[in-house]
Structures are given as C-alpha cells and as structure tokens.
Amino acid sequence: MPATDSSDRLRSTMSLVLLACMPGVLTLLWQHGWGMLFNLVLCAGSALASEAISLKLQQRPVRSSLNDGSALVSACLLAVALPAYAPWWVPVIASASAIALGKQLYGGVGRNPFNPAMLGYAVVLLTFAQSMTQWPGVQLLDLASSLHYVFAWSGTEQPDAWAQATVLDALRNNRSLTLDELFASHPGFGHFGGQGSEWANLAFLLGGLLLLQRKVFTWHAPVGLLASLFVMSLVFWNGSGSDSNGSPLLHLLSGSTMLAAFFIATEPVSGPKSAQARLMFGIGIGVLIYLIRTWGSYPDGTAFAVLLMNLCVPALERWAERRQAVPS
C-alpha cells in the first residue's frame, strides 16, 4: 500500500509539472510551429522507448514505471531546451541518453545523481555542436520545409533567413556594436532580451509560480538561482557599450533562465534535500550560468551549471548539516 501511495504521488506530481510546462510549450509552439512539435514527439517517443528497453533488460516491470510520467517530464524539458528544427537524431539521442545514462543507469527514478534532462542535453551539445547552434528566429516554416530540415539524412544547411545566433551568443561575440545598436540591428533581440525567449521565459515563470503555489517545491532553489544571476549581471554590467555583458533584465529574460530556475534546478532527486543546501545549490547554478554565458565557450551554460552543482550536492548537504548543528 505505501508503494502504491508513493507511485500515485509521483504520477500526480509529474502530471502537475507537465501542466505547468504548458504555457511555455504553447508559447514555443506559437513561435516555432512544426519544429517544436517534432521536438516534443521525438523526445517523448525516444524517452519512452529508452525507458521500456532499459526496464526490460533489467527484468523490471515496464508498464508501471512508464505510467509514472517521469520520462515524459524529462522529454518535455529536453524538447523545449533543444533548437527547433534540429535534425531528428538530436532529440532522439538526447532523450535516450537522458533516460538510459541519466536515470536507468543508476537504478531508475529516485536514484539519479544528475539531472537526466541536462545530462541528455550535454551529450548532444558536446556531440553535435553545429546542430545545436542552429536556432530559428520567431517565424514559422510550412510542413514540407519542416520535414525537410528535421528528417533529411544529409546535413542540410538551414536558411539564413531564420537560422541565426542566439541573443546570448551575439552578445558574447560582439566586439564593435553598442548594446543599443545590437537591439536595433539584430533580429533576435526583442524589448528586453531575446525576441522569442523573453515571452517563453515569462510563460515558464507563470508555470513555475503555479508549481510553487501548489508546493511542488520550495522557493529556495529558484530564488537562489534568479537572485545570484541578477546580482552577477548587475555587478558586471557596464552600461550599453560594445563591451557590455548585458543588463540583469536581459539575462533573466534570455536563454533558458526561467526554465532552469523553476523546472530544472528544482528536480528533487539530483538536488539537495535541506532548505539551506537548496538555496546554495540555486545560487551556485546562477553564478555558473553567468560565468559560462559571459566568459565560457557556450552561450547559455545551463546544462553544465546544473551538472556541476549536482556534483556539489553531497558537500552542500554536509555544510547544511553542520550549520544546523551549530547552536544559535
């Protein structure tokens, strides 16, 4: 009976997380159309297939584990994090790696030391670097063109009209234009951040607040991440000159910031259990995201920031225990 209750709670939580993802998913579907839909279908299919195969090889029950919804949550997070119109093998390999290497390798749900979705993302980022730089602008392609770019076997180059550097990549590589000139000339810039990503970030913020209100997680990790990213970008913000690293608002509304804060840093298994450790966990992710965005080799850095902080979880837990043991 307790095992059944635990399975029901897990299924209910995963369903709520998927529901909270819907504002962000619908925003990205509105922006990218078929490309985002293909990402969702390929990631979900690959995640479920990888889960079923892994469970079968371990001679464990397949149906009950597939029904808990955890594989679909990882697939959904990967689908919205990957570039729309990426070649089909990118979402397939990302999801398969997330489930097989990030989850089932360690014994399944509840035992993974790393965030499965971010592990899958890191695998394809390191393996298919060129495909992971082809980010479309905010416009739709018809079904025939979408099928051509997603399912073509040979490396088909994306049209210059929509394949472009992200806002964070343009900012990091800028050497001559002021920030105002970048906003005016680069098609990817919107009012405060990325043209499409600022709306997607607000949508994921809305979904994250729903999960916070329903007490799916506590405030510590998301507030720690957003606060540290805000402080870092404020401290190193040097106005709108050509060497500017971007304003705090730009960093909060660009890339995968809100997705990272409310849906990735709050993953309960690979993150800390105590409140103080969760706060420091979020702060560490926010600091690393800014450092990687500004001076690293990757324009966003969420996956590597999360995975690096996953390694620090045991140390954070010990630090929190010592803090609690010290009499006030």
Score class of each variant (00 low, 15 high):
Ala227Gly: 12
Ala44Val: 00
Gly239Tyr: 02
Ala200Tyr: 00
His220Tyr: 15
Trp34Cys: 04
Ser6Pro: 06
Ala144Lys: 15
Val306Met: 11
Pro327His: 02
Trp30Asn: 00
Ser54Cys: 05
Phe151His: 08
His251Thr: 10
Trp88Met: 03
His148Pro: 11
Ile93Ala: 02
Leu311Phe: 12
Asn39Lys: 10
Met309Ala: 07
Pro91Phe: 01
Leu141Ala: 09
Gly33Tyr: 02
Pro299Asn: 10
Val287Gly: 05
Ser256Cys: 15
Gly155Phe: 10
Glu321His: 14
Ala315Ser: 15
Gln158Met: 13
Tyr121Met: 08
Gly33Glu: 00
Arg293Ile: 03
Gly137Val: 11
Ser228Tyr: 03
Cys21Met: 12
Leu26Pro: 00
Leu40His: 08
Asp142Gly: 10
Leu212Trp: 15
Leu211His: 07
Ser256Trp: 04
Thr218Val: 14
Ala170Phe: 08
Trp89His: 04
Leu28Val: 03
Leu288Pro: 06
Leu77Ile: 12
Pro248Val: 04
Pro314Arg: 09
Arg214Phe: 12
Asp243Arg: 14
Gly301Thr: 13
Gly155His: 11
Pro222Lys: 15
Leu259His: 01
Ser233Val: 07
Gln158Thr: 07
Leu126His: 06
Arg293Ser: 06
Gly33His: 00
Gln164Met: 14
Trp219Thr: 12
Thr294Leu: 11
Ala325Trp: 08
Ser270Asn: 10
Pro61Arg: 00
Val17Asn: 04
His148Asn: 15
Ala305Tyr: 12
Val326His: 13
Ala47Gly: 06
Ser146Leu: 10
Gly102His: 03
Gln324His: 09
Leu48Trp: 02
Leu140Tyr: 03
Gln158Leu: 10
Leu105Ala: 04
Leu168His: 08
Gly286Ala: 03
Ser146Gln: 09
Gly271Met: 02
Leu105Glu: 01
Pro272Glu: 07
Leu316Val: 06
Glu157Asp: 14
Asp142Val: 14
Val41Ile: 03
Ala20Met: 14
Pro136Asp: 05
Leu291Gly: 13
Asn245Glu: 13
